[in-house]
Computed example of a mutant assay.
Amino acid sequence: MTARAAVADVAPLLLALDPPQRAALPAAAAPVLSALTDTLGLPGVSVVPDVTGLSAAELVITARLSRVDWSEPVGAVEPLPVPTVVPAADGVPLRCHLSGPADGPPVVVVSACGMPVGLISRWLDRLSREHRVLTWDSRGLFTPEFDDGATGVDTQAADLLTLLDAHGMTGAHLVGLCGGAPIALAAAARTDRVGSLSLWHGDYELGEAAPKTAHQRDVQALMTMAGRSRAKAASLHGLFRRPQALATLRADIAHHLYYPYATPELLYRYGALNGAIMTTDCRPLAAAAAQPTLVVTSGADTTAHPAGSRYVAAALPNAALVEFPTGDHLSAFDAGEDLLTLATGFIADPDPRRHSDQTDPEPR
């Protein structure tokens, strides 16, 4: 992993947090890191000798930057990609990331709310080989502008449709990951500009129709509280500054997972947006989305209950369910070769009948 790639991975955190953030790194890293942040237009990072006194955010920054050999020459530094900005219906800027051939079949990756684009890099890298791939950053979580009155699933689905219009995409395939699955469903239920969907380890509110995991219940309660007011989010945020907040985060991607908890304002906005996703009844959405759909889950997912995916697959008018015997929730973001092969196969031939016999694929 190059120093430039590591710094790019923590760029969202550096831009969101008050500078300078600290990182416990070898002293030799300081001049290299300073040159890189200057070249990439990022706030500087102060190198300190050990982790004593570092906040949770500084610890995840340290963990990511520590995976670099700072003695290696950096060489030419490629600038950070500049997102395309499209205004939403209410004027909130939507930061878009486009890749792949301009004339390729359109695919939109609807990621989990609040997650930096780096979390889905394997999806984007693979799909963009043959497809025109679009994704975007959750409204208000990567820009100063935020509309407190426009946080619902309908608004977030309308953002997706706005982006389809802005980029002239018709017949697009939507890849919905985790909390992105309800947004994809809501968009598909409202338009014929979506040709097909695949929903991966979806986090669905289904009332009494399907159980939730303890994780889903806990996060939904947290989102409801944090999204209630800025004052409430600020009072909760102290918990997320402590190193103990990182105990349940997977170390190699903690810098992505921690992002929407990094500041009180981010936590408030995340609570409002993700809380809306986690409390919106998806049963009417599943009944209304007629497009061919592949629903994927794992019996080993203890984050988003697989029963939710089973219900959605049965409720959709034209869907197939693929349930892997192994693989936790984050394996959907790891995007192993088996998942990517399944996804690209369905995008090329979105007939659920040809995939309905894949109920027990090989373990991941």
Rank of each mutant, 00 (worst) to 15 (best):
M1S: 10
A5W: 01
A5N: 06
A6W: 02
A8L: 09
A8V: 06
V10H: 10
V10Y: 08
A11R: 06
P12I: 06
L13E: 08
L14D: 01
A16Y: 10
A16H: 08
P19E: 07
R22G: 09
A23Q: 11
A24H: 11
A30T: 04
P31W: 02
L33W: 00
D38H: 13
L40I: 02
V45F: 05
S46L: 13
S46T: 14
P49E: 12
T52I: 12
T52A: 15
L54S: 06
A56I: 09
A57Q: 12
V60C: 01
T62I: 03
A63G: 10
S66T: 01
S66G: 10
R67Q: 10
P73F: 09
E78K: 13
E78R: 15
L80P: 04
L80G: 01
V85E: 10
P87F: 11
D90S: 00
L94F: 02
R95I: 02
C96V: 13
S99Q: 11
P105D: 15
P106N: 02
V107P: 01
V109M: 02
V109H: 00
M115I: 11
M115K: 07
G118V: 03
G118I: 03
L119K: 00
I120A: 14
D125W: 10
L127K: 02
R129G: 14
R129D: 13
T135F: 02
D137N: 05
R139S: 09
T143Y: 03
P144D: 05
F146G: 03
D148C: 08
L160N: 02
L161W: 02
L163D: 02
L163Y: 03
L164W: 05
L164M: 06
A172W: 04
H173P: 00
H173K: 00
G176Y: 05
G179I: 05
G180L: 00
P182T: 04
A189D: 04
R193F: 01
V194G: 05
V194S: 00
S196E: 05
S196Q: 08
L197T: 06
H201G: 12
H201L: 11
Y204W: 14
L206G: 02
P211I: 02
P211H: 09
K212R: 15
K212T: 15
A214L: 15
R217Q: 14
L222F: 15
M223Y: 14
A226H: 09
A226Q: 12
R228G: 13
A231F: 11
K232L: 15
L236A: 09
R241A: 12
R242W: 14
R242D: 15
A245M: 12
R250F: 08
P260G: 09
Y270M: 07
A272R: 15
I277L: 12
I277F: 04
I277S: 08
T279H: 10
T279R: 14
T280G: 05
D281K: 07
R283W: 04
P284N: 01
P292W: 08
V295G: 06
T303W: 12
P306W: 07
A307L: 08
Y311F: 14
Y311N: 03
A313E: 01
A319R: 09
V322G: 08
E323K: 07
E323D: 07
P325V: 10
P325L: 11
G327L: 11
D328N: 15
A332H: 10
G336E: 12
E337N: 11
D338Y: 07
L340T: 00
T341L: 14
T341Q: 13
T341H: 12
A343M: 12
T344S: 12
I347Q: 07
R353N: 13
R354I: 11
P361Y: 10
